[in-house]
């Protein structure tokens, strides 16, 4: 049974698009048939992050308005057998897309794919309503900042009114040393406030930005912290139980020796 998952956050800049791109890539790496859907009309950038910008001919609005067939607008990622992108329109308005059109497109996509991942625009207006309309499940992305947790809380409240499974949480851009010093909200504090299930945590890593700029999601790389995080999240979506990573820094040789001899740090 195919599943449509919307990635949302309320606040902008917390990593919705990056999460969408990487989850899609990770699921495709696990041999799933995946379609990414960008609903951020007018401010599309999922295509840029995926490195597929130059291949866009038709977009989601063209499909909604019946200018082309759904299959014509889908862009295949040549790195995989079954990873496709349905890009957003850059020139249209959010109001050109309706929730009904979204539901129709998603039900058509479900025949073909295992997972449809929907990238939601920031905010709680029409764009958000469109993105959530056809989804079965929601993933809320937040960062360990008060403002982003506040907005995530608002979004979770709104999602509760939709007929979706309870939303799951991804905490993005964690900086371990700041959490330790108490300069950032800790994971436990965030979960206590939002009181929803945690799906995964992702470290703040320069490599993520680098990879996005190259149009190649970080999940391709075999062993950076962030890529492992995203692949773990994908495995949890598939129902595996994967323990959370620890972000402890590698201990130096000296501290290890001290520990071995029972000396205090």
């Amino acid at each position: 049974m195919a599943e449509a998952i919307v990635i949302t956050s309320g606040k902008g800049g917390v990593g919705k698009t990056t999460t969408t791109a990487n989850l899609g890539t990770s699921l495709a790496l696990l041999d799933k048939k995946v379609c990414l859907m960008d609903t951020d009309i007018g401010l599309r950038n999922l295509d840029v992050v995926m490195g597929l910008e130059n291949r866009i001919i038709f977009d989601i609005i063209d499909v909604a308005k019946g200018k082309c067939k759904l299959k014509q607008a889908l862009i295949k990622d040549k790195r995989f057998d079954y990873l496709y992108l349905l890009p957003a329109a850059q020139t249209s308005d959010k109001n050109d897309l309706s929730p009904e059109a979204m539901i129709e497109m998603i039900s058509e996509l479900k025949k073909e794919f295992d997972y449809i991942i929907i990238d939601c625009p920031a905010g709680i207006e029409q764009g958000y309503k469109n993105a959530v309309a056809g989804a079965d499940q929601a993933i809320v992305v937040t960062t360990p900042e008060k403002s982003s947790v506040r907005d995530a809380d608002r979004i979770i409240g709104l999602l509760e009114q939709e007929e979706l499974e309870p939303a799951k949480l991804v905490i993005n851009r964690i900086r371990n040393h700041m959490m330790k010093n108490g300069d950032m909200l800790t994971i436990d504090e965030i979960i206590q406030i939002l009181s929803i299930d945690l799906l995964g945590i992702v470290a703040d890593d320069d490599e993520v930005i680098k990879a996005s700029n190259h149009g190649e999601p970080i999940a391709f790389q075999p062993n950076t912290k962030a890529s492992i995080s995203y692949r773990n999240i994908a495995r949890r979506i598939l129902g595996e139980s994967v323990p959370l990573q620890s972000f402890e820094e590698e201990q130096g040789m000296l501290t290890k020796m001290k520990k071995f001899f029972g000396m205090r740090n």
Binding site: R150, D151, R154
Partner: peptide, 8 residues
């Protein structure tokens, strides 16, 4: 019985 979230 519910969590009263931001904006509610």
């Amino acid at each position: 019985t519910k969590t009263v979230r931001s904006g509610q």
